[in-house]
């Protein structure tokens, strides 16, 4: 398990976290139009990376299939709005349901294997759903994607428009914050402890009487659910969905962001997403083959700071593996 961070460092991180939270609360009034959308997008991708980290950082299963749930959430919103002519709340409900059911079905098969086999099965499921999305072009728009209009969001007597970037930002921020709090409570609960015990020693967890497959499935479903929520927020923000969102390379991005930020934590994936998305957005303008630089940064991170940036900040840079539930 991770060495506890010295009190001073921990407190410094807590203060910095508080500053960031305050900044996020006021962001729409501090930022220009582009960065308002940019931070909104980072929150969405951060939620996606955090969802991945439930399955990887906490439970020890490396999945490249979380993009399936992200894409499912995005398409559930788009298709419900286009074909059912529903409101935003129903579209969000559909996204939650679809991603949860899909995660239960895929997870049922995937958690029966572990190690490399688990990685492969998640990639295969991801490719199957990606191909299906391409195939049923008349419904999904395939490679070209699906553009749609978002109706006003009814909250009591208020009808809020997603076309107002401030409304869009606060809605995304609220959902991400709520998702973070739910995940935090789950990870502090006995379920979270059991996830970590499976990651640390699956055999021992089994010997002391836990139904390991059931808890793995639970972690997989939780991860899929929040990846689906991120996908739904993406669709509401950009009014667009595309088959490419289901491709396993999207999962790969979540993996990288979580590892760079600090796997096995809920904050690390947000930190990694923020840094990497800012880095690529800035560097991409100056250097078209920026992915070479991204690759170099990741190699460097894995060698120098295997616990990610959060690990470095907490003085655990040299320790290998994931850092336990925080």
């Amino acid at each position: 398990m991770a060495r506890p961070a010295p009190g001073g460092r921990l407190r410094a991180i807590q203060i910095a976290g508080g500053v960031v939270l305050l900044f996020l609360c006021a962001a729409p009034y501090l930022l220009g139009t582009y960065f308002r959308v940019f931070v909104t997008e980072m929150l969405i991708w951060g939620l996606f990376a955090m969802a991945f980290d439930i399955i990887y950082g906490y439970t020890g299963m490396l999945s490249f299939g979380q993009s399936t749930f992200f894409g499912a959430g995005a398409y559930a919103v788009g298709l419900t709005l286009v074909h059912a002519g529903s409101g935003v709340w129903l579209a969000l409900g559909a996204a939650l349901l679809v991603s949860l059911v899909l995660a239960a079905v895929i997870g049922y098969f995937a958690v029966k294997v572990s190690g490399h086999y688990f990685v492969i099965i998640t990639v295969v499921f991801s490719l199957v759903f990606f191909r299906l999305t391409l195939q049923y072009k008349a419904v999904t728009g395939g490679d070209d994607g699906l553009s749609f209009q978002i109706p006003a969001l009814n909250v009591g007597p208020l009808a809020l428009s997603f076309y107002n970037p401030v409304v869009n930002y606060y809605f995304v921020f609220a959902v991400v914050l709520l998702s973070f709090l739910v995940c935090f409570l789950v990870m502090q609960s006995p379920w979270g402890r059991i996830f970590v015990s499976i990651r640390e020693n699956e055999h021992r967890a089994r010997l002391i009487g836990y139904n390991v497959e059931r808890y793995k499935l639970l972690a997989f479903m939780l991860s899929g659910l929040f990846a689906g929520v991120a996908g739904a927020l993406y669709a509401l923000t950009f009014r667009y969905s595309n088959a490419a969102l289901l491709h396993w390379t999207v999962s790969g991005q979540g993996v990288l962001w979580a590892i760079v930020g600090g796997a096995g934590t809920l904050v690390g994936p947000f930190l990694g997403t923020g840094l990497m998305v800012s880095f690529t957005d800035y560097i991409g303008f100056w250097f078209e083959n920026y992915q070479i630089l991204v690759g170099a940064v990741i190699i460097l991170m894995v060698i120098v700071a295997p616990r990610g940036i959060l690990g470095v900040l907490m003085g655990e840079g040299g320790k290998g593996g994931t850092s336990g539930g925080r």
């Binding site: 009190g7 001073g8 460092r9 410094a12 203060i15 501090l30 930022l31 930190l271 923020g274």
Partner: peptide, 28 residues
């Protein structure tokens, strides 16, 4: 004063807030 807060070194704080600053550089 809180003991933990008292032991927060300026270097620790700058390190943490520096990461946030890098991430948001240029935004404002």
């Amino acid at each position: 004063m809180d003991k933990d807060l008292e032991s927060t070194s300026r270097r620790d704080f700058l390190k943490v807030s520096g990461a946030a600053a890098i991430a948001t550089a240029g935004w404002i």
